[in-house]
């Protein structure tokens, strides 16, 4: 099945940005509609990136651009890992590394707003990591391997046995997607106390790289949601896509119904959710006999 893996990997690299762009555009239109506004055209993110690339390079730091490009490359490799059915732990690790590359790139700027934003970004990574690691452990407990392709040989979707891990993932997705109530570090709305956070001083090529990285990230995160719904049945892929769409709509609704909370609340709640969801769900496993169970 190597050819299938290669094909999927190439498809991911080529199609994911297009899909990410369209989903981001749809996100903006839906958010606008929830606020009784019209919203821009669905291709607006593409127009934005095109405009950013056409800007004069006046203040771009070479180190910053290289680090941002590395961030993008690592994320693409993470997605390739995922779609080629490779090691899931590697995918999560690369995704985290990509975030760290962004943090390093942003810390190049001396502006106080950027520095505070960088601190908050680090905090965000620390809040997401526990849940993501528990997610990977859950995959291992369910299928017996860290490999994504092993999910396609199960009979039941993973969400049946790991519902709390799923809820925890959706909770953490709010942080990763930078949606209220957890859009504390940097978001597309520059109204915060730290203006645009880590990306305040970036423009032109730097900002374009960040945009494209976010497109890839969107597809990868939605794929993680979809992982809970795939089985050996090929139709389950449709179910996975539907589930990802529903979760995305839910995230947009949550974004428009909550204020932004402070970092202390985000930290406490994300660790609490990770702890509770992980412990309770794994406890369920240790007392029930089932197919992919390793410990008994």
């Amino acid at each position: 099945m190597v050819w299938l893996s290669v094909l999927l990997a190439i498809l991911f690299v080529v199609v994911a940005p297009v899909l990410g762009c369209l989903i981001t555009g749809a996100d903006r239109i839906l958010t606008a509609r929830m606020q009784r506004r019209r919203g821009p055209s669905i291709l607006q993110p593409y127009y934005d990136v095109r405009k950013l690339l056409e800007k004069d390079a006046r203040a771009n730091d070479v180190v910053q651009v290289i680090l941002l490009a590395l961030s993008l490359v690592m994320l693409v490799v993470a997605g390739v890992c995922l779609y080629a059915g490779a090691n899931f732990l590697l995918c999560i690790l690369l995704e985290t590394l990509s975030s760290l590359m962004f943090i390093l790139a942003a810390s190049v700027d001396p502006s106080p707003f950027v520095q505070v934003g960088v601190q908050r970004e680090i905090l965000q990574v620390m809040c997401c990591e526990p849940m993501l690691l528990l997610f990977a452990v859950g995959v291992y407990l369910y299928t017996g391997s860290f490999s994504v392709s092993s999910l396609f040989s199960t009979n039941l979707p993973m969400v049946v046995w790991l519902p709390l891990i799923f809820i925890g993932l959706v909770f953490v997705l709010t942080i990763k997607l930078r949606k209220s109530p957890f859009d504390i570090a940097s978001s597309h709305h520059a109204h915060q106390e730290i203006v645009a956070g880590a990306s305040t001083e970036m423009s032109g090529l730097s900002l374009a790289l960040i945009e494209v990285t976010h497109w890839y990230e969107l597809v990868i995160l939605m794929s993680w949601v979809g992982m809970f719904f795939v089985t050996s049945n090929p139709l389950s892929v449709l179910l996975a896509i539907l589930a990802a769409a529903v979760v995305f709509l839910l995230e947009i609704w949550i974004d428009n119904s909550f204020a932004r909370v402070k970092w202390q609340v985000m930290f406490k709640s994300s660790w609490m959710v990770a702890l509770v969801c992980g412990m309770v769900n794994f406890a369920m496993f240790f007392f029930i006999d089932s197919n992919g169970l390793v410990f008994f």
Binding site: L30, R33, Q35, R36, R38, W253, N256, F258
Partner: peptide
Amino acid sequence: GLFKLGKMTLQSLFSKPATVAY
């Protein structure tokens, strides 16, 4: 104390925009 604006948000999704495309 959650989703207090949830109803207005959902209703707005299916209502005509309040803005004028001037």
